[in-house]
Structure formats: structure tokens, C-alpha cells
Design a binder for these strands. Structure first.
Length: 575
RNA sequence: GCGCCCGUAGCUCAAUCGGAUAGAGCAUCGGCCUUCUAAGCCGAGGGUUAGAGGUUCGAUUCCUCUCGGGCGUACCA
């Protein structure tokens, strides 16, 4: 149950009964404990509209509010309404949470949602730049699924285009030199760099590479076979990264750029039939009034190049068309670099003009910034290459391994290995998920691989502490009676309130797909638990209090585990 | 030139359709392990929210301008 939403609706009813219908209650979680758990800020605005004193309206609203869940209501300041919840009500919600698989989170009205994320270029190895789209998109997929939507994961991988000419030409060249291709392809980044260097510096090779592009596009069997081998190798690499990162993408979720090849001429024909396409400098473009380019000239959305080739707008249009026509998507979320903003707004605008998108289709860009070094320069290795994602993972796991070896040497090897993996991977994903900024952000090994403070390991650690309590006391959480919840100590109450706020947190995240809201919530939950844990003895308390605290602990563990799971982060029993 | 995004503590980031005294983490300083895992807890210092106007009962948030940074701006994706 979403308490915030419930209170908000009740206060709006009270406002309406006083002649302020249509005025928002603006109920939110209170900023300070003395203000209660929630505060309604809408009275001031409503009073202004009605031209009456805010305090008087607040009085009337409060008098018309008769809710069992409220212990007391106060009017404060210029007209804030502070809401203090009845502890027995909180306990009731917690019992509901505990007896439900869904932790008292209601199902949303189901929509079909396409989530476009990760989308690496198969010509190269996955690099650190893919971490954001992949982590955030995957978290969105998990959350929307949990809320009851039909989620279609769409990994729009780049598997087509001119760059494959060099790669195929290079493959053939190596094969002619008697080299084992599968060995050469184990390091895709090196392979790509070598092929690119040849393309730049060797005119004969470059000419050859261009011919390979033409042959590939023409369906030449040999080229296709090489291409398929390369793509296969590259996908295997991606899947290995996904698996290690605990990303839910599978091979079945890959809908490659090339799969739209046959649709591209159709898109051009359809746009032509609708008289949307204009030929300009030999290229076929859509000109829309909303887009103005240099010197005030109309800015084209280029659908077909003058040489007949298709730019990426064409395959993106084909994808929109496919997603609404075939997949029947109500909504599509594009977790794509903020620099693509213009491209995506053109994509959606042209799609609407072409009828690929109707008013019912909610397609939106969920942007994020690019990674920079500490000095604000683009994040690259010394030789200008992107930092490999698997190197980042390796570094994270290695650091986590050192730490667990030092902190908990009595764990056996296998357990420590598992902790290193879960903690290391959790740390790098959390570092991405816990920031909302759509602007660029600074990558720093020590920050990203930190295991202290607001990090995944902190949350994982809180979880293990709780599990440890039950292990030590040899109590199975399932055997606890669900009835005795005593929220008497301030920290018990605070923890209870936090727990109860999971549903409204998840709904808030789903509004804008900002995983950092969930991260913040979990961090606060874990922090509140840690304080509670320090201040309130659990196993040493007398029986009734002990059981109540065990219940709170168990609920916290379940909530942390579920929340982390929705972020794509795992937990361990001990660390 | 035009367009978009951004500027918050030494650093990295929060701040829920504008709300009360702008919050965390890291770093610094001081406490807490013979009691449930110190990857922790408790506490301290640290801010003219880039600057100037404006709207408002109230502005980090909205508007205007200035300064500073980033990105985009037709045949790469």
C-alpha cells in the first residue's frame, strides 16, 4: 500500500469539501521527525486561490480529516499540515508486508513496455561506457516487471555498417597468414584497433575493406560467413559480461540492427507515400518545422543517404515501427547517452508524422551523461582505447577479494570467492545506479570501487548482519509470530516507517525510472537499521520485545534483498 | 551562430509537480569492539546553492541577463 498516495487523496478530498476542489494536497514524506511522518503542503496554494487565510483553511481541512491511521495532526508555520501516524497502523502495514510475497506493493495496471538498453556495438568489446545503459536499463526492466508490466527487453546491438568491412578484411588477412581466428578474436578490442589502424594506414587494405562492405551488403556467402563468425564471437563475449554482471539480458533479447535491413526500403517507401521525404543534396530527408539547424535553415532527419545507404535513423525508425506494430508496445524506454537527444527527438517526431507512433504510444528517451576522468577529459586508456568492461569487473572483484580475505579469513575459499564476486559487481553497478545526473560524471576507481558509505557493500553488509542474528540464535524467520510488533523505541518506529515506505518508493522510481531513488531509500533503510541495531539489543531483549525486533530485522532483510534484487544486485549470507 | 544540458561543502553526489533549519558519502578531527560481524555506530567542523535581477507568503527548484563548463548542430553510430 502506498501510504503517501492514500494520505494525499484523503487530504485532497478534505480540501475539495472546503471548496478547494482540484487543488493538489502535495503530501510528501516529512523532512524532520518533529513534523511527523508526512506533511501536506498544498493548503497555502489552495488558500491563495480561495483568497482566504491559509491557517483557516488548514484548520478546516484538519477538522474534516478523520483517519484512524493518524495519531495526531498539527498545523504549523504558514499552513503546513503535519501528519503523525498511529504506531498501531504502522505495525498493521508491516504485518501486511510480511504476509505478502510482494511486500505490500500493489500491482500496476499492466502495460507492454519495451526497454531499449545496453545496445553495444558488436564490432568492439564492451567498454565502461556501456555500464550505465546496461545497469540502469536492467534495473528498470526488473522493476517494471515486478510492478506487473509486460516487459520486452530490446538489445539493439550494432552489427552492421562500414566498420565491419575492415574487420572482415582483417579476418581474411589473418586466415591467409594461417592464424587461428578464434584465438585472434578473444580480444575484440585489440582486433578492432588493429583492423582500424590498417584501414587508416594501408591504402590497399582500406580499398579492400570497402569492397568487403559492398560484398557483405550484397549477400556474398563468404563475407556473410565471416560476419556471422565475428558476430557470434562478439555476442558470446557480451553474454559472458552480462552473466557476470547479473544482467537479465539473454540472446533472445537481442534484436540486432541488421534484423531491420529488409524493413529499411519499406520505411523509405512508406515515408515517400506520405510525402514526408524530400530529396536534398541527393539524400532523402524529412524536414520538420520544429527542427532548425545552422543559420536558421531547416534541419533534416536523414533517412537515406545519397549513396543509397541507410543511416541509423532509418533502422531506428524501423525499430519503432516494429515495436508498435508487432510488439504492440504501449511504452518504450530508450536508455541512451544524453548526446543522442536530438537524434531521438527527431526519431520520435518523424515516427509520429509517419504514424508509427500514435498518441497512445509513450516512447521516451531516458538519458544519462558520459564518463569523464578526474580532469574532466573523456575517459580513455593511455593509448586512446576505451576501458574494457571486463577489466573494470576484474578490478572490482579483485579489490573485493583482498578485502574479504582481510576482514573475514575464517570463511572458506568458496564463500570468500562468492563474496568477492557479489560485492565487487554490486559496487560497480551501485555506483552507476545511485546517481541520477543526466550530465557527464567523473569516473574514479577508488570512488566506484569503494566499499564504504553509500555503496552496495554497505547494504549487503546490513543484510548479512541480520542473517547473522538469526543464525546465531538458530531461529527460522518463518517461525516468528506475525502479530507482536512493538514500535515503542524511537528507532523501532523510524525503522518501521522506513520499511512501510517501500511501495511508495518503488512507484516513485517507476514514474521517472530513476534508480537512484531506490538506492537512496535502501541506503536510508540500511542506515536506520544499523542505528537500531546499535541502540536496541535484539537477542538479549525480553521475549516479546525480542520477537518484535526479530520481526523488524527480518522485514528489513527481506526489503533490502528485494530492493537490491530490483537493482540487479545480489546478496550473500555472510561476508 | 543556433539549440540542449549543467554549475550545490575540499572531492563525489542528494534534495520527491516551488516548502519549514539545503542533506549524505569520501576526506579531516574526536569518541565507541570481554555484549547480536568495526565493510559498522555516535559526534564535530565544513555552504552567499557560479553571480545579478525578477515572480512568490516561500526559490537549489520557475523567468531574464552575465560568467564558466559540456554536448549537439545532413550523409559515423
Amino acid at each position: 500500500m502506498n501510504i503517501r498516495k492514500y494520505l494525499d487523496a484523503e487530504i485532497e478530498k478534505a480540501l475539495a469539501s472546503q471548496g478547494a476542489s482540484g487543488c493538489p494536497a502535495i503530501t510528501k514524506q516529512a523532512q524532520r521527525v518533529e513534523f511527523g511522518q508526512y506533511q501536506a503542503n498544498g493548503v497555502m496554494g489552495a488558500a491563495k486561490k480561495l483568497k482566504i487565510k491559509p491557517h483557516d483553511l488548514a484548520r478546516q481541512v484538519v477538522d474534516n480529516l478523520n483517519l484512524d491511521c493518524l495519531q495526531r495532526v498539527e498545523i504549523a508555520g504558514p499552513g503546513f499540515i503535519n501528519l503523525h501516524l498511529e504506531p498501531t497502523f504502522i505495525a498493521e502495514r508491516l504485518r501486511a508486508m510480511r504476509s505478502s510475497e510482494r511486500l505490500d506493493v500493489e500491482r500496476a495496471e499492466s502495460k507492454t513496455v519495451v526497454i531499449d538498453y545496453s545496445a553495444p556495438n558488436l564490432a568492439k568489446e564492451m567498454h565502461i561506457g556501456h555500464l550505465r545503459s546496461t545497469s540502469i536499463g536492467d534495473a528498470a526492466a526488473r522493476l517494471l516487471e515486478f510492478l506487473g508490466h509486460t516487459v520486452i527487453r530490446a538489445n539493439h546491438v550494432g552489427d552492421w555498417g562500414a566498420q565491419f568491412g575492415s574487420l572482415l578484411a582483417y579476418m581474411d588477412q589473418l586466415a591467409a597468414q594461417g592464424e587461428e581466428l578464434s584465438t585472434a578474436l578473444t580480444d575484440l578490442e585489440k582486433f578492432y584497433m588493429a583492423a582500424s589502424a590498417l584501414f587508416r594506414n594501408d591504402e590497399t587494405f582500406a580499398k579492400n575493406a570497402r569492397e568487403y562492405v559492398v560484398r557483405l551488403q550484397g549477400g556474398d556467402p563468404h563475407c556473410l560467413a565471416l560476419w556471422e563468425q565475428f558476430i557470434e564471437e562478439s555476442i558470446t563475449h557480451c553474454q559472458a559480461v552480462y552473466e557476470r554482471l547479473n544482467i537479465t539480458l539473454t540472446r533472445e533479447d537481442i534484436k540486432a540492427e541488421s534484423s531491420y535491413n529488409d524493413d529499411l526500403p519499406k520505411v523509405v517507401n512508406e515515408l515517400t507515400d506520405m510525402s514526408l521525404l524530400v530529396e536534398s543534396d541527393g539524400a532523402k530527408c524529412v524536414f520538420l518545422d520544429a527542427f532548425i539547424g545552422k543559420d536558421g535553415n531547416p534541419l533534416p532527419a536523414l533517412v537515406q543517404k545519397s549513396d543509397g545507404g541507410y543511416p541509423y535513423l532509418a533502422s531506428d525508425l524501423a525499430a519503432v515501427r516494429y515495436r508498435t506494430r508487432e510488439l504492440k508496445a504501449d511504452q518504450a524506454l530508450y536508455f541512451v547517452d544524453a548526446r543522442q537527444k536530438l537524434h531521438l527527438s527527431q526519431l520520435f517526431a518523424v515516427s509520429r508524422e509517419a504514424g508509427y507512433l500514435s498518441a497512445e504510444n509513450d516512447f521516451k528517451h531516458c538519458p544519462f551523461g558520459v564518463i569523464l576522468k578526474k580532469d574532466g577529459k573523456p575517459f580513455k586508456t593511455r593509448d586512446g582505447a576505451d576501458v574494457k568492461l571486463r577489466d573494470v569487473i576484474e578490478e572490482a572483484v579483485s579489490r573485493a577479494r583482498d578485502l574479504v580475505n582481510a576482514k573475514n579469513p575464517e570463511l572458506d575459499d568458496a564463500a570468500r570467492g562468492r563474496v568477492a564476486e557479489v560485492v565487487g559487481v554490486g559496487a560497480i553497478k551501485y555506483a552507476e545506479l545511485s546517481k541520477n545526473r543526466t550530465t557527464d560524471y567523473i569516473f574514479d576507481w577508488d570512488t566506484m570501487l569503494s566499499f564504504e558509505g553509500n555503496t552496495a557493500p554497505y547494504l549487503q553488509y546490513a543484510y548479512t548482519r541480520i542473517r547473522s542474528i538469526f543464525r546465531r540464535a538458530d531461529i527460522k524467520p518463518d517461525t516468528l509470530h506475525n502479530s507482536r510488533l512493538l514500535l515503542t523505541e524511537p528507532l523501532e518506529l523510524e525503522l518501521g516507517v522506513k520499511l512501510m515506505q517501500l511501495p511508495e518508493t518503488l512507484e516513485a522510481v517507476a514514474e521517472d525510472f530513476q534508480a537512484n531513488i531506490l538506492c537512496n531509500y535502501l541506503f536510508e533503510l540500511a542506515g536506520t537499521f544499523m542505528s537500531f541495531y546499535e541502540a536496541c539489543p535484539i537477542l538479549k531483549a525480553e521475549e516479546g520485545v525480542r520477537d518484535s525486533r526479530l520481526l523488524l530485522s527480518d522485514l528489513t532483510a527481506n526489503t533490502l534483498k528485494k530492493g537490491l534484487d530490483l537493482l540487479g544486485i545480489e546478496v550473500v549470507e555472510q561476508m
